[in-house]
Every structure is written in structure tokens, then in C-alpha cells.
Write a protein that binds this DNA or RNA. Structure first.
Lengths: 359, 359
DNA sequence: TTGTAGGCGTTATCAG
DNA sequence: CTGATAACGCCTACAA
């Protein structure tokens, strides 16, 4: 690997001049400049990011800490972040935590020694990252939390409007005529799960429907959890006629449970998920879901980081991305209600309804 | 950020001693050792990976270059690689190429300046990476290609046994009684697409079935491509009774096309994909597929890299991972054949058939 | 406009 | 066994 010294030798100039040309840090006379550029070309020279980072006290890396890239919602987030990072000359260093706080700390601590330009993190849980973040900020690196927030988080953040999304979904079900609604929430120590539950409850409260505790089941954000809790819900009397699931994986598990219980979706029970994963389109029946753009989450976070890097010193920003209700075939009016109010016209509050569900 | 000098001061020893303690590079007397360790603890000291890399001429980073993390097959691969990397003290730096050779080159060239311990790459296309790889190898960093190989690749590699997987799937369809088979292949400049086509053809040849050119359509590895080419296949006379798709995304598109054409899967036409993505389980009907483990692909590649790093100088290794045929509901005997040979007992060559397809 | 030199935090070598 | 000291490759005052 050729270094600057080599280039200087080849071009017959001093090392400093090469640096100036490479970094445009001083106007170098054209002929000399060209000699340097030619030498760079000829030698295939690339400046050492390591040395540069050490010297500048900052690298072009952005740390990205997520729970698990294997979770279908996250790849889009990562891709979004990588796209804006890459086009601005930054690279992503990816860390999976498995929601394990210790692993998160390991990454948080080590990453700092790379002097990254910033950090994008989907916090593992309720862990307080304030101290860590402060230490990054002192080093001039921004930290933005996305998707969900640690407790007491006062730094930059980007999240979906979980509350409103859940509210709209629930409200839609109510407007369809459902009265016995249940929800399966994600882990309630996660802010996004909390907010989705809050949205659900608000819609219920508004219609003076109550939510008995056993109609709101908490579980992990995965299929297995959705399956188990749905089985519980299906045994309740009266049985709920609609379920709002905390995310699509939970919904998927619920769908499985419904089928196993010998019930049909949406005839016997309606189902709405959250995230609008690609696979929502392919389930049977296709899954209605509150759509949020993981990609946009990623790009927004990366942009925020880069703005900070450019010197934006304004107070912490809390960006909220809108969601939209994507209706597919997993929702229908409840059987009784359909008979009770045969021709009630209803208007959805959904922001976008590209697909109307077939009865 | 405290540095070694600070620790030395705090512990009242020389900088060199701190280094020795931190790296276990010399036996330091216990009391002194403890003083150093305490200081490290107290200051929350972490060695600068940047400085260390610069000095040692090697970092603990592993570059991972893939086409697109958003493609559902890749997250598992990345996760596999990250898991073994992490547990050995290495970190992953993730780069998406979008199959764009220029982007690939940018990453390849820049990544080198981080002095990574190695590189795992899913090549963007037929691009010849020999020169690049050579330059990494000279720098003491291994390069392993996975999933598909660049032309003339003579370095380490890990791939699925694409040929055998396709062969088994095709053979299974033939044994079910299908005679008019078609295939939709991925881009034939990719070795994995080539190999899958080769497996398909071998099975056909063995049974003396011929493959007219229009029964083997080439397209990109995505839903849209599968959709378009399936529509073409469905208009052929005679219409194929079974389609082997180059991957699950293609199969998904084909499924859509079949539905649109007013046909039923598997009654009118059987379908088998490749990859066994999570979503294969949820399609309607659920998709039979040649299963390969992306996770294992990732772990195997990372391990190979680390072995090289430990000094393994043996000749290039070409590791091949076995596939297995996962049968679900998208396959059935052809209608005519079912009548022709009503009770033919058939044995599948599939390695594992956890789920028997319901008629 | 160009060149020189110091130092970023480590590690490795070599004296003591 | 411990401590100085010289690189690693680059950037950036500052001097010429």
C-alpha cells in the first residue's frame, strides 16, 4: 500500500503538498497539482482512514446498533441509514445486540474508540444510555436513538407516530362495528409498545369501550409470543371479534393461532398488525397493518446525524414519522354487527387506503 | 477519552508497562499489574482501535460487501458472519453494492485503508475481483466470496450446493408425474443462477425430457421478474404443469401471475422456489422451496476468514453447504398424470421433508 | 504557494 | 520485569 510519502517521492514534491492536493486544503499550482494527481492515480493511492481518523480525531464511520438484523423490520432501517451515509462518504459499522444490554454496552464502549462520526441506535431496552451518549457528544459524535427510546432519553430521536398509528387502526375496527376488541402488545418496557397500547386505549376510551386487563396481553415482538397470547384471547368469553397486534410478527403468530383454533380470519375475527412488513402481503388472508417506513427511519436518523456533524447545535430534536393504515383482507365487520347494522356507511380515518378489503 | 499515558500517570508506572498489562505482552509483577488494572477500571479506559490498528497494521474489522441487506436472503448471512466475528472480537463493517460494480470497487478500495482483518463478499456480478483480492492478501487480509462467485475466482469460497438443490427439486416434480416442466432462472451471469439451471437440466436430461428454450426463462432475482416471466410461461402451449423458480422471490412473482391468470397452484400448476425464506411459509399456498441456510453461509465464511487470520496457509478452500427440499403446499401431481398413474408410489430424493404437502 | 516538523495513541524494540 | 523511544500514516500550523 502506497502512502503519502511514496506519492510525494513519485511526484517529486513534498509530503505536505500531496496532503494539500488530496484534501484541497491549500491552492496548489496546477502543474504541480497535476503531477500529484497523476502519481495518486498511478499508484492507486488511497489515504489511510486509520491514520486520518487518528489525526483528525474523527473517522468517517457511523456506528449502527440494532437488536437483530434478522428481524424483518430492521434491514430497511439499516439500508436507509447506509444510503445516506454512503452518499456522504460515511460507512456503517453494524452491531447486533439481541436486546442484550451487556452486548450493547460492549459495542457502545468499543465503538467510541473508532472515533465514529456518530451513532444510530435502536436501544436494546429501558437501559439508560444518557451517560454513554454524553461521552460521545463530548467527543463530538452525535447519537440518535430510533424506533424506540431509552428511559429519560433527551437526545435526538426519530420514531414513528406509534400512538396515532395504533389509534387509527383501532378506530377503524370500531367503526367497522367491532365492540369486543383485544390487543397483543409488545414488551411494555419498550416505548413503541407502550405508545401503541396507549393509542389502542385512547380509541377505546373515546368510544366508551372498556379494556378488561385480560383483553390486553403483553408479549415479545415475535411470532411465538403472538401465537401464545392469541390462544389465550381466543378462549376468553366473550371472545374478541378483533385483535390489534403490536407488530406484524405478533399478528402472524395470532393468525396461526386463529387457524389452529378452527376459526377464520376475518370472518370470525379481524386482525391488524403494525409495521407493514413485506410479508403482510403474502399471508393468507393478507394482513392489514399500520404501515411505517423503516427506510425513512434510517435515512432521517442518518441525516440528523450528519447535520449535527456539520455543526448544528440546536436543542435535541424529536422527529416523528407518520404512519398509514394499509388495509388488506384480514379485517371485516363482525358477524353480529353486520347483521345489527346492515348498511351502516363508515368512513375510515386511515391516511391511505390503497387496497380496499374485499368483504 | 483517557489514553494510555493517562493510565500510566494514574497508576504511577510507565506507558510501556500499561501496554504490557493491557495486551498481556509481558509478565508484569502482580502489585503493579493490579495498579494498572485499577486505573483502567477507574478511568473506563479502552484502547483506541484506530491507533492500535495503525500501529499493528491490522484492525479488528471485517468488511462485508453484499448486494442489498433489504433482500430477504441476506440478513441471515450477515447475522451469521457477525455472530462469529463478534465472539472472536471482530466487528463488521457493512456495505451494500446494489450489484453495482462501481460501488463495489469504491468499497473494495476504501475498505482496504481500514486495514481490515478480512473481507466477506457476495460479488455484485461477473466482475473479476482477482486483482483486488490479491492486494488484500498481500496486506495479510483474507477474502472469501460467498453465495456466488466472480469469474475466475480462485480464492476461498462458500456456496450452497445449488446444482444438487435444483436437481433434487426438479427430480421431485418429475417423480410426481410432471412432464412439462419450466424454469425461471436468475440472471445467468451469476454462478448460483447458472448452477441451479444446470441442476434443473440434469434432472430433465436424465428422464429424457427436453427443455425447449422458451421453457427456461431468465430474469432478475426478484418478484417483478418472476411475475413477468411466469406470465410468458403460462401462455405457452402446451402449458407447463410445474415451474422451478430460481429463488423464492421469483416464485412469489410467479405465484401472483398464476393467480392473475385465473389458474390455481398447485392444482393447475406446481411451484418450487429456492432459498426457503421465512415468508415461504406464509404464502397462499405455502411455498415449497430448496432450503439453504444463509446463517450458516455467514458463519462458515467468517470462520474461514479467522482461520486464515490465525495463519492457515493451505490452498484455497471451496466449501459447499448442503441444501434440503422443504415441501409445502405449492406442489401436487399434475391433473392428467394423477389420472394416468393414480397410485404410483414415489420416493423423494429430498434430504428432509418435514412437511408433507396436503394433496 | 510550498515545505517542514510535531504529534494523534499504540505497539514493539531495546536498554537498563 | 520495567521504562524509554521510535515508528505507523496522516494532517496542519507555521515557517520559508
Amino acid at each position: 500500500m502506497a502512502n503519502m510519502q511514496d506519492i510525494a517521492r513519485i511526484a517529486g514534491v513534498s509530503l505536505g503538498t500531496v496532503s494539500h492536493v488530496v484534501n484541497n486544503s491549500a491552492r496548489v499550482r496546477e502543474p504541480m497539482r497535476k503531477r500529484v494527481l497523476d502519481a495518486v492515480q498511478a499508484a492507486g493511492y488511497q489515504p489511510s482512514q486509520l491514520a486520518r481518523g487518528l489525526r483528525r480525531d474523527k473517522t468517517n464511520m457511523i456506528g449502527m446498533i440494532i437488536p437483530d438484523i434478522t428481524n424483518p423490520f430492521f434491514p430497511a432501517v439499516v439500508r436507509g441509514a447506509e444510503d445516506v451515509a454512503f452518499s456522504n462518504g460515511y460507512r456503517l459499522i453494524l452491531c447486533n445486540t439481541d436486546n442484550d444490554h451487556d452486548k450493547e454496552l460492549i459495542h457502545l464502549n468499543e465503538l467510541r474508540t473508532y472515533l465514529p462520526a456518530g451513532l444510530i441506535v435502536i436501544p436494546s431496552n429501558f437501559s439508560d444510555l444518557t451517560a454513554q451518549a454524553e461521552s460521545y457528544r463530548r467527543a463530538g459524535a452525535g447519537v440518535v436513538c430510533i424506533d424506540r427510546l431509552p428511559t429519560n432519553w433527551s437526545g435526538d430521536s426519530v420514531t414513528a407516530d406509534n400512538e396515532a398509528g395504533a389509534y387509527n387502526a383501532t378506530r377503524y375496527l370500531i367503526q367497522l362495528g367491532h365492540r369486543k376488541l383485544a390487543t397483543i402488545t409488545g414488551p411494555l418496557h419498550l416505548t413503541n409498545a407502550q405508545e401503541r397500547l396507549a393509542g389502542f386505549k385512547r380509541a377505546m376510551r373515546e368510544t366508551r369501550l372498556d379494556v378488561a386487563p385480560e383483553y390486553a396481553q403483553e408479549t415479545s415482538f415475535d411470532k411465538r409470543g403472538g401465537h401464545a397470547k392469541a390462544l389465550i384471547l381466543l378462549r376468553l368469553i366473550p371472545r374478541p371479534t378483533a385483535i390489534f397486534a403490536g407488530n406484524d410478527m405478533i399478528a402472524l403468530g395470532a393468525l396461526l393461532a386463529i387457524r389452529e383454533a378452527g376459526l377464520r380470519c376475518p370472518e370470525d375475527i379481524s386482525l391488524i398488525g403494525f409495521d407493514d412488513l413485506d410479508l403482510a402481503e403474502f399471508t393468507n388472508p393478507s394482513l392489514s397493518s399500520v404501515s411505517q417506513s423503516g427506510y425513512e427511519l434510517g435515512t432521517t436518523a442518518a441525516r440528523l446525524l450528519l447535520e449535527r456533524r456539520e455543526g448544528d447545535k440546536s436543542p435535541a430534536k424529536h422527529l416523528t414519522l407518520q404512519t398509514s393504515l394499509k388495509l388488506r383482507h384480514s379485517v371485516a365487520p363482525p358477524k353480529q354487527a353486520a347483521e345489527d347494522h346492515p348498511a351502516t356507511k363508515m368512513r375510515s380515518k386511515a391516511k391511505t387506503n390503497r387496497l380496499a378489503p374485499k368483504a
